[in-house]
């Protein structure tokens, strides 16, 4: 028996995230909580990207659009005085799913580099659409006065409570993806990634399974966007920008595309690196770029892949 390295790391990371609020209180380091919140929210989005990119082979370069959509689903109702989380969260998920359904229907008719470009194009269209709406602040965006309300159940204004809401979303996303990829649906999606022609000759309408997968991922990412809007008290088109979509891809690839926890590890490492490097040097994007190239060239499976190797070696 090999020591279960991967399982051990998974449990350790989740435990660390679970006890962090207590620790930061004791150490008087509130900025750590802030960092962990950002990591968990982006990791949730990266987990959803991994579902289509890692398991489904659909390299979307427009995933940040859903984060923006989710944030606007907090901000626009709030602008009109509607703060209920029971309105905002379903609105975010519904809008994300709808955007994925409409754009996916078109994107998924293309393959390879065309797919990448067209997902990027749709995200940019969403970006410019919101830039043009002066009512909601144009390209400056708007401040959100208060977080989503779940009166009597959760107080999202409480940092600790909000923290655990975010953690539940992250763990929920991980669990959902683990169920999906091992269920029949996930087998169909992974088969279509591996050999589309063979899947069709077996009797799978691969286009539809891909589209369904794309919609699920869009809905999940929009839920992450709903968290992001609440976290920032702010929304703007900039959240949909292609550099953010690139960051999400970076997280997935760095952590290990097609591995369950890879996106979380990728988010942790990328955001901490960004934090450290950006205060040390203005050339930090260069260093990040070099790291990404190294991962692609020398560690195809990303961080999860390295852990798996460790597991086999011992």
């Amino acid at each position: 028996m090999h020591p279960p390295v991967r399982l051990g790391v998974r449990i350790a990371v989740l435990l660390a995230l679970a006890v962090l609020p207590a620790l930061t209180g004791a150490l008087d380091q509130p900025f750590l909580l802030d960092l962990a919140l950002r990591i968990m929210i982006l990791a949730t989005a990266a987990v959803s990207l991994n579902l289509i990119l890692g398991y489904g082979g659909m390299i979307s370069f427009g995933h940040a659009a859903y984060i923006g959509i989710g944030a606007y689903a907090v901000g626009i109702p709030a602008y009109y005085g509607e703060y209920s989380g029971y309105v905002q969260l379903p609105l975010a998920i519904g809008a994300g799913a709808l955007f994925a359904l409409v754009t996916g229907y078109i994107c998924l008719r293309t393959k390879g580099v065309y797919f990448i470009m067209i997902t990027l194009a749709f995200a940019q269209m969403a970006y410019f659409a919101f830039v043009s709406i002066e009512e909601y602040g144009g390209d400056d965006g708007l401040v959100i006065e208060q977080r989503s309300e779940f009166t009597g159940i959760i107080d999202m204004e409480s940092t600790h409570q909000f923290y655990y809401v975010v953690l539940v979303f992250l763990v929920g996303a991980l669990y959902l993806v683990s169920r999906i990829v091992n269920a029949r649906f996930g087998m169909a999606v992974q088969g279509a990634k591996d050999n589309d022609q063979r899947m069709q000759s077996l009797g799978f309408d691969t286009f539809r399974y891909r589209l369904a997968c794309y919609v699920i991922a869009g809905a999940m990412a929009a839920a992450a966007g709903w968290l992001m809007g609440n976290y920032n008290y702010f929304f703007s088109p900039e959240m949909m920008g292609w550099t953010h979509s690139g960051e999400l891809i970076f997280m997935v690839v760095l952590g290990g595309a097609g591995s369950l926890f890879g996106p979380l590890y990728g988010a942790i490492v990328l955001i901490i690196l960004e934090e450290q490097l950006s205060s040390a040097t203005v050339y930090w994007p260069l260093i990040l770029g070099a790291i990404l190239i190294a991962v692609v060239l020398f560690a195809r499976g990303g961080l999860e892949g390295m852990l798996a190797k460790l597991e086999r070696r011992k």
Binding site: I180, A183, R184, M187
Partner: peptide, 21 residues
């Protein structure tokens, strides 16, 4: 397994593990 699955109804099944079916 995928060849069998293709003929056993639709595959919009998101929860039960296929490999234990």
């Amino acid at each position: 397994l995928l060849a069998v699955q293709a003929h056993d109804g639709h595959s919009y099944r998101f929860w039960r593990r296929a490999r234990r079916d």
